[in-house]
Every structure is written in structure tokens, then in C-alpha cells.
Design a binder for these strands. Structure first.
Lengths: 406, 406
DNA sequence: ATTTATTTTCTCGACTGTCGAGAAAAAAGT
DNA sequence: ACTTTTTTCTCGACAGTCGAGAAAATAAAT
């Protein structure tokens, strides 16, 4: 159902527009805001005045005025207007970060994960304690943290902030909302890691001035395989999803996946899948859950030296990925694909198979293969996505609160 | 990029809301409009008055007033405010319809297709002539036709109104916009047929009061395989797409598809694919382009009587469909699936394989199989979709024109 | 030191829109 | 004829955007 509009909503939308343009371009003067948003100067005045009174924006010192004329007043997000916490859960570590409303990092630390421990209880306790440590170390009230943004690989229920299935905990669900509910007023965002990568890539490409950008996909290669899709919807907003790509059915080849199904993409293209093929382990057995990168490097070295089975394993991985991506573009549309993750270091070995797999579908033959780029620093992208999403969420919440607040 | 908002846009949105609620519920009185839209009574007055003056709405005779009190004034779309033409291109016939702005059918006829003729030229000429016939027979000016909505199976470029790939013309593209450009001012909409089915199903389910409806998929079974996905986006608007599902890669089994690729879903589940398997024709040959329904009925009969290879052919078709659908829900989300088309009459033979294919993916095992319903009358759904989309388009255009028109 | 030019921000009135309340209209019941 | 009931219509208050021009604040020129 469509919803009704009103003059108040107009203000809300335009306020959001102002905040968004400050996010995109950094602190700006009145004139620039007007230009970037298309709003009339008078409107910008009204909005900035209101946001300034609400302690959301603050005036920044302008740099030595190069030109003559009345000096510009630079507006920027007020640092103390709120804080955000990001939690990046990866296979071996958990990284906690604290940042302010302007997006500047305040504190960050990592904690090692205990692989042997597959139950969620100790993890949950460590998680709550780490958050406590984060705020107390920086002398921030829990109440000032407006958003906690958590990311993990696996299948996520974003609405309920519940981890449905993850490589680490399997089907043991983790309910983050319930964990923080009692003591934290912050909004909990739980995102698939590769979703954040896709989000960050979309923003990067938009900033780089890519024309007619409709959608971007991110593919993460590692122990597990992740896919994120970011699409600009009709209203120009970015809507991102993390499909269950790694465990999408690839082929009825009987390769057992650690999820319990057979023939998942990950069973061919995840690290353990590559290792299994390279060592000719029977496809119905699952090798060690976590394959050390050094081990993968060894296989890659052999493959590059011409060892047949190792080469074959990587090519099969590429094939599974290419076929999966061909299905993705068949079901969505052609879009640029960014490949990240530790697996990118084997891209030379994967590429041929990947292209072969892509070329097998009509969509690709008709409209050409999607442009593929390799962006190794996954962690950076994940953090970029965390910040972008959390700050946008804060902006929206603050604006929404303003209206019905007083 | 977000776009700025203004008071005029508010009026536009709310006018659209009023027109949409009239579409959904039929002619309504002031009070009902206010209730359905959530707009204040005064606002409804302002909007209806404006639309009435613009000859978009008209007052209808109210039925014998059952209750006392001031009699209601019923508003409805004015029939003559514009006309729409729908063209349904199927494998054997082309159906042309003419309807008015209120959505009532004025004229309809069908023309047989010549199968032997695979060039687009004669088709294009017949198409233009049929449209001419449609308006002249009903004494309507070409200029009064505001939308021509065309549907076909195959791959479509909705933005350019160009048929990119179709079962009939293959890669020979048909540019409908160019065909009508010189003489028609109407907006040309070109949609994949199953996209319209998905749209219609979404509206039906919404009307039936299904709760938490996020998305609906329609799967059309016949000579070719089509899929439409309708999703309600954040703003509550319905956005529908027609992925290239029939030619999505299913399996590297070498089955040649008529599109030239190998292993397409259609190569297993299209009528010719089923026939090929049933008759044990080598998978690298393509049987007759159009398999008569009578022929398929015969195979189905044999299958139901226990003939192994026929049974197997249908089960393989189901398997390919089920695996494809499992990929669809992996890449999108779980959603109700409506199956239509002539192939539904063999659903009993397909079902087992379909369920088997679906169950092979983690997504389905984790979140359950999507609810599947069978809705045989495909043509009805296509027309429903045509009308819904064309009328919505007209509503939007009329409202948009109002603002910058005077 | 004062004036002028320039650039930016701020302010005012006109306009468009929504909303709530209550007046006006129009029919049925008494 | 009067009352009741239901619905539509109208009015004034309020919220928002916009264009134009006033005001502010600085550098350059005199």
C-alpha cells in the first residue's frame, strides 16, 4: 500500500537529504548544500537552523578564507550527537569498534575466537562484556550509543537481528536483540558481512561517478562463499540483500557441504571444497572446518607449478562460482561484480573456470559477461559498509525522532 | 541519490493515492476515500475537486440510499479520460484489446500467427494494422490512447520497449517503440508475460488479505518456461521483474536448448524438452519448435499409465524446475509461488520431481518450502496484469501532467 | 581610513499543501 | 414542520518551499 504524504514528511525527507549530502561530501557550507541537494537557499537555512538547534549539526571552523566576500559557515555532524558500535565477527577474531556521529573512530580492539568452542553461550558473554568495555574505556554512557551494527558470515534475519545460520555456530541461532535488550537502548543492526561489502562497493562506485549504476554485487571468497547485492531502487535509495549464495544448489554432484546439503556452491568453491578436490578426498566427507591459509597457499603453489589435481580443484571452484554468478545475473540483471576476501589471492587460478561458468548461460551470451573487479581488502570494505549503514540509520532515526519528539 | 521533496509532490503523491484506492476498491464516496487513504476529509475534497475539474473523475449515480442522511457522492474514473490498448502475443495467436480509463473492455479480437514465418516484418505490419483497426472500429482517436501495453514471452528491455529475445523471433529484436513512434503518442509498455502474471497474483493475494506479503513469484509452464517476481518495496509500491529463468543454467547435462545454450531449465522442462526425454531423442537435437498440446497429452497419458520413460521425462522436468526455484528462493527469499500455463495440466506428473528439486537446497531445508499454488487460467492473469499496469501508468501520467501542464 | 566590490547568509512575503472543526446540505424518521 | 442522521463542503490555522532581495562580512581599491 502506498502511504499518504504530508508537509511534515517533506521536511523529513529534505532534512534527510541534507544530512545525506553532508555524509557524502563531508562538511559543507550553506551554498554547497543548496547546490548538492537542489533545495532553495531559504530551505537550507531553515533546515540547518533546526538541526543546529537540535544539536545534530554544528558549525565548523572554516579554513583560511581564500576568496573575499562573507566567510562561509561550514556545517558538519556534531560528534557527540550519538555513538555507534560495530562488531565484525569473522572466523578467527571478533573486532569491536566505537565511533562518533561524525564517523570518526574512537576506539577499536579485537578478541580471538576459540575454535574449539562451538556453543553460543560463552560467545554471547564475551560479546556483552566487550561492548561494556568499549563504552566504559571511552567514558561514554550506554544510552549515547544509538546503533550497534553487527556483521557475520552466514544467513541472517535482519528484521529480528537474529543469526539464523552461520559457519561457526551452524544452526544454533544467536539472538542479538535479546542479548542487548535489557541494558542497551541502541538499535541493533545485524547484517551479513558480504552485504556490507556490496553496500560499500556501491557507494564507492557511485562516488567514482559510474554512470547508470543500477546494481552492484560483491562476492566474498574464503572458507565460505558470500554474496551481497546492492540495488538502487526507484526512489534512488540503496537496498541491499545477502542471498544465500554459498549454499545455493550448484550441481547434483554429491559433494557434501558443511551445511549438511549436497552440491552447494561452497562445497566446490569454499576453501575446504578446494582442498577436498585437490587431495582427492571422497566428496562425501568434509575436511577440517577451517583450512589454514598456509595450507591453501601450498595447494595454490602446486597448482601454479602444474600439479594437475590442484589446478583442477581451483578450476572447479571457479566453474561453480561462474555458474552461480550466471544464475545470479539470470535472476537479477547484469551488474558489476566485485570479488573480495582471502580467496582473491588465488584469483589467477580461479579466473578461467569462472569465465567458463559464466559463459554457459544465455543471459551472458546475449548481454555479455558482467564486469568483474578484484578488491582484496575485504575488512576495510566491511567497515566502510558498517559505518555507512549505521550512520544512515542514525540520521534517519534522529530526524524521525525530532518530529514526534517535540 | 535521494531527491528533494516539495509541497507539490505531496499533492501528487496523495492524488495518486486517491486514484489507486479507487482502482482497488472501485468507485467510492468521499468518506470511504478518506478512510482508505488515511487523508483528512478536507484533503480528499480538495483532491477530488481538482481531479473532477480536470475531467479525470466523475460523479456516479449512487444506488438507492439505504440509510438516511445526506446522500453520498460516488466518485469514479471518467471512462473517456483516456484509453488503453493491450496486446498479448502468444505462440499461436495475438490478442488485441481496447479498454477505457475506467478499465471496462470496449473491443477485443485475435489474429492467428503464422508459424512458418519467422521474420519480424510481416508481424510488425499486422501489428500496426491491428491497432489501427482497434481504434477505428470503436471510433476513437489515436491520440486518446494513452498507453499501449504489449506482452510476450522472452527477454524484454522494458525501458526501450524492445523485445530482446523471444521464443518466436529468436534474437531478431522487435522495437515496438519505433514501430508506433510516428503516429501514436501513447506510451508503449512492453512486459514479459509472466511478469504480468506475477503482478496480477500479487494484487489478488493482497486483495485476499494475505498478511506480511513481501513478494510473489509466478512460474509459467508451456513450450517455454517463464518466471515473474513481484516484490513490494520499502515504499509499499509493487516492483516486478521477469528474470531470464527459462534459460538460467540448470545443469551441465548437455541438453541443447533452442536458445543455443546447453543445460537451460527450459531444455529439461519446456514441452520440447519433456518430449525429447520421453522419446529418448539425443539431448543435442531440438525437436519441433512447437509441440502440439495433443502430443503432450499423449505423453502424459502414457506416463500416467506407467510408461517409464514418459514418467521419467516429467519427473526430470519437475526436478529442473524445483532446482531452479530453489535457486530463486536462495537468491531472493522465500515467497509464495503460483504456477500457471498450459503445463499445469501435467502438474501431477511434475510435482514429485519439483518438490525433490526444491528440497535439495539449504535455504528450503532451513526455512521450509515456499507455498506453491496452481492457477491454470494464465490468459486471465495476463490480462489482469496488463490492465493493472496500464491503468496505474495512466493514473501516474495524468497526475504528473496536471502539475506541469498548467 | 574609507569606500567599493564580492560573496555568502539570512529574512520576508507569496504560494501550495494538509488538517481539524464546524457549518451546510440533504435525506429519512417523527 | 421539526428533528435526527449522515455526508459533504468550507474556513482558518499551521507547516513547508521558494525567489528575491536585504544584511553581513570580508578583500581589494582608492
Amino acid at each position: 500500500m502506498l502511504t499518504k504524504s504530508s508537509t511534515e514528511l517533506v521536511r523529513q525527507q529534505n532534512s534527510a537529504l541534507v544530512l545525506a549530502s553532508l555524509r557524502r561530501h563531508g562538511p559543507l557550507a550553506h551554498t554547497d548544500i543548496s547546490q548538492h541537494t537542489g533545495l532553495a537557499s531559504a530551505t537550507v537555512s531553515a533546515i540547518t537552523a533546526e538541526l543546529e538547534k537540535a544539536d545534530v549539526l554544528e558549525r565548523r571552523e572554516q579554513q583560511a578564507s581564500a576568496s573575499r566576500g562573507r566567510p562561509r559557515v561550514i556545517f558538519g555532524q556534531r560528534r557527540g550527537a550519538g555513538y555507534l558500535v560495530t562488531v565484525r565477527i569473522s572466523s578467527d577474531i571478533v573486532q569491536y569498534s566505537l565511533a562518533d556521529y561524525a564517523g570518526t573512530l574512537i576506539d577499536r580492539f579485537e578478541e580471538a575466537r576459540n575454535h574449539a568452542d562451538t556453543s553460543t553461550r560463552p560467545f554471547a558473554e564475551a560479546f556483552v562484556a566487550a561492548l561494556e568495555k568499549l563504552v566504559s574505556r571511552s567514558r561514554i554512557e550506554r544510552g549515547q550509543v544509538l546503533v550497534v551494527s553487527i556483521s557475520s558470515k552466514g544467513l541472517v534475519d535482519p528484521a529480528l537481528a537474529r543469526l539464523v545460520w552461520s559457519p561457526v555456530f551452524g544452526a544454533q541461532q544467536v539472538d542479538f536483540a535479546a542479548l542487548l535488550e535489557p541494558h542497551w537502548r541502541a538499535k541493533i543492526l545485524l547484517s551479513n558481512e558480504t552485504l556490507l561489502v556490496a553496500h560499500a562497493m556501491a557507494l564507492r562506485m557511485e562516488k567514482a561517478g559510474v554512470k547508470n549504476l543500477q546494481a552492484v554485487a560483491a562476492l566474498s571468497l574464503g572458507h565460505s562463499i558470500g554474496l551481497g547485492i546492492a540495488r538502487f531502487d526507484r526512489s534512488g535509495e540503496l537496498s541491499v540483500t545477502a542471498p544465500n549464495f554459498g549454499h545455493m544448489l550448484n550441481s547434483s554432484d554429491g559433494k557434501l557441504c558443511r551445511c549438511g546439503s549436497q552440491g552447494c556452491i561452497e562445497a566446490s568453491a569454499g576453501f575446504y571444497g578446494i582442498l577436498r578436490t585437490a587431495f582427492e578426498v571422497p566428496p562425501d566427507t568434509i575436511p577440517a572446518k577451517f583450512v589454514p591459509l598456509a595450507e591453501m597457499d601450498k595447494i595454490a603453489l602446486r597448482a601454479r607449478q602444474g600439479h594437475r589435481m590442484s589446478e583442477y580443484a581451483f578450476r572447479q571452484a571457479g566453474l561453480a562460482l561462474g555458474q552461480g554468478l550466471s544464475r545470479m545475473v539470470s535472476l537479477y540483471e547484469n551488474m558489476p561484480i566485485a570479488i573480495t576476501g582471502p580467496g582473491t589471492r588465488y584469483f589467477d587460478l580461479i579466473q578461467r573456470g569462472l569465465e567458463e561458468g559464466l559463459a554457459q548461460s544465455q543471459q551472458v551470451r546475449l548481454l555479455g559477461a558482467p564486469p568483474i573487479s578484484v578488491v582484496p581488502e575485504e575488512a576495510t570494505l566491511v567497515l566502510e559498509g558498517h559505518f555507512a549503514r549505521a550512520l544512515a540509520e542514525m540520521d534517519h532515526d534522529i530526524i524521525a525522532a525530532r518530529t514526534d519528539g517535540d
